[in-house]
């Protein structure tokens, strides 16, 4: 199992940013997700976030909504998410689960933490869990040795950044813009300032996500952040592909472009 610490140490030693890719479990199919995520790792992703599909993804844009909807239509259950993590972790990437809070709450925080750790997962990203409500999850994660990643946003004042960062282990997720997930024409200018502000409150790596979709944008973000997070752009490749083989090829191609970007 590759830890987040090892990932960021290695990236630092190579004088580059880490590349983080997101894909929901069960998309495009249950097996297809493992294949696509493995292709992302082979192309150069250091960390994979496996999305736990949820019926009400209120911070996701149309691309991820579409993928998650298909995943749920495919009958994806939490057991499938854990199997996906297991499959992807074997590829050598540090593997996290990104999920809205309610599925963990319902499954049971301690049980989910235990099962995720057994599957080889190294932690979670919980975009709608605020520090105020995070107590039970922090306890359960610590108990199972999982990392906990929370988000800061351009709107976050210093005291919130400090509070969120104090709940994080592994890295801090800096949302580059005010908005939902999805590739954009350009990376928000707010991102660099937010990374700087965040560094004042933590020694953890700071990774930037939301709106990053090509090599040039990855290079730009890599110049000031410890990691570059890409989700919707990978999903777009799979949605637009006529079949699985060409989808995987397109994912691989994008992964390689982004991997070159973080090394520029």
């Amino acid at each position: 199992m590759t830890t987040l610490q090892a990932v960021f140490d290695k990236a630092r030693a190579e004088d580059r940013a880490a590349l983080v890719g997101y894909l929901p479990a069960g998309f495009p199919t249950k097996d297809g997700a493992v294949k696509a995520a493995t292709a992302m790792v082979e192309a150069g992703c250091d960390v994979i976030e496996i999305g736990l599909p949820y019926s009400d993804p209120l911070m996701d844009g149309p691309t991820i909504q579409d993928a998650v909807h298909r995943s749920l239509e495919n009958g994806t259950r939490i057991a499938d998410v854990l199997r996906t993590v297991e499959g992807v972790a074997k590829s050598g990437a540090a593997t996290l689960v990104m999920t809205y809070w309610n599925p963990i709450d319902r499954y049971g925080a301690e049980r989910f933490a235990r099962d995720l750790a057994s599957a080889g997962g190294v932690g979670t990203i919980t975009p709608d869990l605020t520090p105020e409500e995070s107590g039970p999850w922090l306890d359960a994660s610590r108990e199972s040795g999982l990392g906990t990643v929370f988000l800061v946003a351009p709107s976050s004042p210093d005291e919130r950044i400090a509070r969120v960062a104090a709940c994080c282990t592994g890295f801090v997720y800096a949302a580059s813009l005010m908005g939902v997930t999805g590739a954009r024409e350009s990376v928000s200018s707010a991102a660099e300032g937010l990374v700087k502000k965040t560094r004042a409150h933590t020694s953890l790596p700071v990774c930037v996500g939301l709106g990053v979709g090509n090599g040039a944008q990855a290079a730009e973000v890599a110049s000031y952040a410890d990691g570059v997070i890409v989700g919707s752009a990978f999903i777009r490749r799979l949605l637009d592909a006529p079949d699985e083989t060409s989808g995987l090829a397109a994912v691989r191609e994008l992964g390689e472009e982004l991997a070159r970007g973080v090394r520029r």
Binding site: W101, D128, T130, E132, E133, V152, P154, S155, S156
Partner: peptide
């Protein structure tokens, strides 16, 4: 309580 993206907390 509040279970929302951190981006909305200040608002």
């Amino acid at each position: 309580g509040r279970y929302v993206p951190e981006a909305l907390i200040p608002a």
